[in-house]
Simulated assay, not measured.
Amino acid sequence: MSLDIASLPSSDLDPFSIDFFDNPFPDHERLREAGPVVWLERYGIYAVARHAEVHQVLNDWGTFCSSRGVGLQDFSREKPWRQPSLVLETDPPEHDRARKVLARVLSPVTMRELRDGFAAAADAMVAGLIGRKLDGIADLAEAFPLSVFPDRIGLTQDGREHLLPYAGLAFNAFGPDNALRREAMARAAPHIAWVTEQCRRENLSPDSIGARIHAAADSGEVTADEATLLVRSLLTAGIDTTVNGIGAALYCLARFPDQFAALRADPKLARNAFEEAVRFESPVQTFFRTTTRETELSGVPLPEGTKVLMFLASANRDPRRWDRADAYDITRKTSGHVGFGSGVHMCVGQLVARLEGEVVLEALARHATGIEIAGMPVRSYNNTLRGLKALPLHIR
């Protein structure tokens, strides 16, 4: 199979630049309109920005694998910066073995067990914010997940300040060797050391989710070392995706007061309001896959061993898939969005993120009469994640 790159639509876009991160949406539209597959000249890779192609790549792990890395780095040619994740950076059947353990400990039954405690904590936290000017990120989007999730994983109280930098590091590492990645790597050592140590069985509290993962080593489902890696995976997937998802929901509800009014009128829309914020803002912006063989994608031949960059955020606003794609609508049927991925590699922390997002928005619907932006939001820059560093709010 041969492909004349010159015949493909191409772009000199740098999707890992600060200018792009500040406002990616016009470039998303240009990529979608250029064609189903676009050649990114700067990195010598293929890119897909339409929903149909992104969904196809995500769901065909046999052709578009994760085991060669879900970032720009190709693990078959370069040494990974850390031991690869057993769920994010493997493929079946190895992936299935690890995923089965996580699916059991993070089952819908577990979420029901967690719900009352999470809801009570959200209610108390939100009630204490009414009538205040606050930072919606530090005081709620970060504060709530960090107050409930690490406890259930079984982590010690000391040292939790390492959690957010570690998760940010992991997502920055999926990008190219740019300033963001280099700065994150330069600061990485203490965060990696703390997280690695805390994920060991002897450092987790009994009857925690982390301890249940390690119990799978007793039955031979995974090894003791693999159990440690699985706990690590939860700390990456269950913190940053939740923080940025809640932050996105707050940012949306503050900008679209009619949608907050609809949520107040029907608090049962809280789950969908969170889900729509994940579609609309896409906290996880991009992921890579690598072709395992010569193939075709929407009629475009792709050689074996090439990186394909999926613009998840662009797919989530593709007008070919969504009516009024650029509108935040909490009554929208959001099924099919790829904010948490799709297929066998769908985000392992999605149930936790959805539960936490739902209970926070339910609490806001009960206690608040309005949410207003009270200052200039400050964006947080990361090669993979989209979120805010600060979001000044007034919650009435």
Rank of each mutant, 00 (worst) to 15 (best):
A127Y: 02
I213E: 03
A184N: 10
S282M: 02
C65Q: 12
A119P: 01
A127D: 12
S233Y: 07
E362T: 15
S66N: 08
T110P: 02
L229R: 15
L180W: 06
A103E: 13
R293P: 06
S66Y: 10
G62D: 05
C65V: 10
H367L: 04
M1Q: 13
P392Y: 05
S17C: 14
R182M: 13
T196S: 15
L253F: 00
K100W: 06
H345W: 06
H394A: 13
G154H: 06
A103N: 15
L86V: 11
D326W: 05
F288G: 10
H367P: 03
I373T: 10
M376C: 09
F280H: 14
E78G: 04
F287I: 15
T295N: 04
S233T: 15
A327C: 11
L180E: 05
D329R: 01
W194T: 00
L297Q: 08
G35F: 00
G44R: 02
A368S: 03
R201G: 12
L204Y: 06
A325W: 01
G168F: 13
V359P: 00
D225A: 15
P176K: 02
I137D: 03
V54R: 07
L146Y: 07
A315F: 06
A47M: 02
L393M: 11
R50D: 02
G238M: 01
T331A: 11
V195D: 10
G136L: 05
L235G: 03
N172T: 10
A216S: 12
G375V: 12
L106E: 07
I373S: 05
D139Y: 11
L114S: 12
V243W: 03
L388A: 04
K133N: 15
T110W: 05
V338T: 04
T295L: 01
R289S: 07
N23S: 13
D60Y: 07
N382P: 11
S67K: 07
Y251K: 03
P190K: 08
L106C: 13
A353R: 02
N316K: 04
P80N: 11
P206N: 04
S11R: 04
W61S: 14
V48D: 13
Q259E: 14
T223M: 10
R354A: 04
C199Q: 00
E362Q: 14
S219V: 12
R82P: 00
L3A: 04
R324V: 09
D225P: 04
A98S: 15
